[in-house]
């Protein structure tokens, strides 16, 4: 894997625990990703994508350009088709019309250039934590030992070195998602797709996870598409919030978030934050009301 070469020298890794002197053939993951990757890789182009599940239009003519290294939140009410739109980028769903491409290459099927983090229950329960994370490198034809070594360095990054030989069943929800993120990153994808990854977590854990995610993102400089229905989460995380409406799923607004990086919890009381949040709320409320009226007139 060429990606491993991006790893840099020692650094106090995010939420990771410090190296414990264990024979680790790979250097810890470092901050140099930011400059190396942000420049050119991970450009996602969504052009006129429509997804029609046999008369039920989930996504209607969505066009979106995501810059390399950008953190984009796809915000919208439940069932508006935002997950479906992301699944077209992942390659799980083929658009009825339009096309999706990553760095100019059209998406035909799932691939290891696009890492995926699911809402829940996606770790293989029959594999240990280490083997879960090593699965991607193994599929990328790294040998078993090297795949495990890669997995261990990623587990260290998410602070779960002590759990590598446990099964996912014993982990808490937050820990499972950290393993999920480590697993998705272990192939050094260009794009990280996250489908409401923190939706099932309690509010406190969610906050910690959001900060951790931002730290990992800044270290990897990877493009992130993050699907959520939580306005606070979207504004806190994103460079850009794209709002989607329900039935049919349309992209209705594209708001830049002009908060500086690195983000901190203190910013959630700033004027910029509140203004952006209000704007999102207005758009969503108008949209929800319209959908509500529409449903009522049908009934």
């Amino acid at each position: 894997m060429s990606g491993i070469e991006y790893a840099a020298a020692e650094s106090g890794m995010g939420m990771g625990t410090e190296g414990d002197g264990e024979a680790n053939t790979l250097p810890p993951l470092g901050k140099t990703h930011t400059t190396q990757l942000k420049a050119d890789k991970g450009q996602v182009t969504i052009e006129g994508v429509t997804v029609d599940f046999g008369g039920n239009v989930a996504v209607d003519d969505a066009t979106l350009e995501i810059r390399p290294g950008e953190f984009l939140c796809l915000l919208g009410p439940s069932g508006c088709g935002k997950s479906t739109l992301m699944n077209t980028v992942a390659g799980f769903v083929r658009p009825t019309a339009g096309c999706v491409s990553v760095d100019g290459v059209q998406v035909e099927q799932p691939g290891l250039d696009r890492g995926m983090v699911f809402q829940q229950h996606s770790l293989f329960p029959w594999k240990t934590v280490c083997d879960n994370v090593a699965f991607g490198p193994l599929m990328a034809n790294l040998g078993k030992d090297q795949a495990r070594a890669t997995a261990r360095s990623f587990l260290e990054m998410v602070g779960l070195s002590g759990y590598e030989n446990r099964y996912p069943g014993v982990l808490s929800g937050g820990m499972k998602q950290r393993v999920g993120i480590a697993r998705a990153l272990a192939n050094y994808p260009k794009v990280l797709l996250m489908d409401e990854p923190f939706g099932a977590l309690d509010a406190q854990t969610r906050l910690v996870m959001q900060e951790n995610l931002l730290q990992i993102w800044s270290e990897f400089g990877i493009t992130v598409i993050f699907v959520t229905h939580d306005i606070d989460e979207a504004v806190f995380l994103a460079d850009r919030v794209v709002i989607m409406s329900a039935s049919p799923g349309r992209l209705i607004a594209d708001l830049p978030v002009e908060l500086e990086r690195p983000r901190s919890l203190a910013m959630t009381t700033s004027d910029v934050y509140i203004r952006t949040k209000q704007r999102c709320m207005e758009l969503i409320r108008t949209e929800s009301k319209r959908a509500f009226d529409q449903q009522r007139s049908v009934a």
């Binding site: 290891l112 229950h121 293989f124």
Partner: peptide, 10 residues
Amino acid sequence: VYIRAAQSLG
């Protein structure tokens, strides 16, 4: 979801 996770991991 397991199958999709595996697919996205190559």
